[in-house]
Design a protein around this nucleic acid. Structure first.
Length: 479
DNA sequence: ATGTTC
């Protein structure tokens, strides 16, 4: 490594501008988490991102940073609309991968005897695994509508309510989506995958709220101790993956003609203002909308499954989305930089938006306390709810962490789990798990991840979001 | 993440 790391305070580490870097790197971490990343490639990736045209202030990294395609996962980078670039590698292969948390009026303890039955029914209702096909077959015309309308497409089809949309980031629809830039292959891959969970770290978990850190905000979020909740983690499936793939290929050639050097070919990009940049944004928005429709539909089937298995009315279940956030996206936003309002394209790759109290884009019901920030942990530990902050607006373009972050690669994790019965290990901890394949569970063992509590503590202490509640898993379905 | 090497 040929760069320096300076400790600013307990929670901030600076990589001073050097060589081809246009801005310094700023890492949010802690003395406990820093050793995890010092030897991997992710900090070099922060340095690489800092060389890209039009980058503003800092190349940022959250405490859950780890190695990714070109850009690190757990990274944030903002570029001016005027001179900046947009890069598929800064968004990630799973465009609009994200999480949606559902609250209920049920007590977890009362439902505990039913968890196994619920998990089994959810596993039947929601297809999981790589290449899994859903219960919906979309004609090309309908699939284009999904790509433009997002979650509201599902609501129009009776799969949810208008209120659900109000509790979804951007109302579950990104503007500027243009299906004409999406390849035939992407549409083919997406036509039967709506309402499917996928594989890897995607999951659906039944959880119990087990600790409240901020009572006032918890009240505003309708969270209470002992409450039964459901967390859905999924994305844009093969549809978004293909869109990313298509644009990476195109931009790989395109970027060679732009006259600047890339430290890594995986940083393929285009100027935001160029036709190529605009086309990517339009395609990315299609994938983002597909993902929002996907999580909306998965939620609808989750509601139906709970009502059926528990034999209760919707009004007694009261299963409502607390919020739905995306953590793989690039967005056009206005931020104050050095006292000046600037139009920026903010890349959040494995990072969550964290809007402060009073911000107009926070749903009205939460506006006084800030945007809900949902942080899934690894399988078998816990997840967190936080609230957005002003400090995040000032330091990270309104962003915070997105999860635990890997410490072992998938290969290393499979090796570490060799010969172990992971589902049995989880059952011994009181967590019922049902998965399509054994390999996914091995890839996802707890040891493969950083301690999510340390990650959340680091962003809380840095002021990038405020801890509200912790949730423990009771049951999980996986790919 | 991903029809896990079109």
């Amino acid at each position: 490594m040929d760069f320096e790391i300076k400790k600013i305070d307990e929670w901030r580490f600076l990589i001073p501008k050097a060589g081809a870097m246009r801005v310094p790197g700023l890492i949010f971490s802690s003395s406990e988490l820093m050793p995890n990343i010092k030897d991997d490639q992710s900090l070099q990736q922060v340095v690489n991102v800092a060389t890209l045209p039009g980058i503003v202030k800092h190349a940022l990294a959250m405490p859950d940073i780890h190695w990714g395609y070109g850009f690190p996962i757990g990274g944030v980078a903002a570029f001016t609309m005027e001179n900046g670039i947009i890069s598929p590698g800064g968004v990630g292969y799973d465009i609009n991968c994200g999480v949606r948390l559902l609250t209920t009026s049920l007590l977890a303890n009362e439902i505990r005897p039913k968890i196994k039955e619920l998990i089994s029914a959810l596993f039947k209702a929601i297809p999981t695994g790589v290449g899994s096909r859903g219960r919906i077959r979309l004609s090309r015309g309908e699939e284009k509508k999904v790509a433009v309308q997002g979650a509201s497409w599902a609501v129009k089809k009776g799969l949810g309510t208008k209120e659900d949309l109000e509790r979804t980031e951007d109302h579950g629809a990104m503007q500027g989506a243009d299906p004409s830039v999406v390849s035939d292959r992407a549409f083919k891959r997406g036509h039967d995958q709506l309402g499917t969970l996928g594989s890897g770290n995607h999951f659906l978990e039944i959880q119990a709220v087990d600790e409240i850190y901020d009572q006032k905000i918890a009240d505003a979020f309708y969270l209470f101790e002992g409450q039964l909740a459901v967390l859905i983690h999924s994305g844009s499936r093969g549809f978004g993956h293909q869109i990313c793939d298509d644009f990476l290929k195109e931009m790989g050639t395109h970027v060679k003609g732009l006259g600047f050097n890339l430290p890594d070919r995986q940083l393929a990009c285009a100027y935001i203002k160029s036709n190529m940049g605009k086309r990517y944004l339009s395609g990315m928005a299609c994938a983002a909308n597909y993902a929002w429709a996907n999580r909306q539909i998965i939620m609808h089937w989750t509601r139906e499954t709970f009502e059926k298995v528990l034999g209760i009315n919707p009004s007694d279940l009261n299963m409502e989305p607390l919020y739905d956030v995306c953590h793989n996206i690039a967005k056009l936003e206005t931020h104050v930089v050095d006292g000046k309002k600037l139009a920026l394209c903010v890349h959040r790759k494995g990072a969550t938006r964290s809007l402060p109290p009073g911000h107009p884009d926070v749903p009205e019901r939460y506006r006084k306390v800030g945007q809900p920030v949902l942080i899934p942990g690894d399988m078998g530990t816990c997840s967190y709810v936080l609230a957005g902050s002003q400090k995040a607006m000032e330091e990270t373009f309104g962003s915070t962490c997105h999860g635990a972050g890997r410490v072992l690669s998938r290969k290393q994790a499979i090796k570490a789990a060799k010969g172990r019965a992971i589902s049995r290990e989880l059952e011994d901890k009181g967590i019922i798990v049902q998965s399509r394949g054994k390999t996914t569970l091995k890839e996802e063992i707890s040891e493969a991840y950083k301690d999510v509590s340390l990650v959340v503590e680091a962003v809380h202490m840095a002021g990038l979001a405020k801890k509200v509640a912790r949730l423990r898993p009771l049951g999980v379905i996986k790919g």
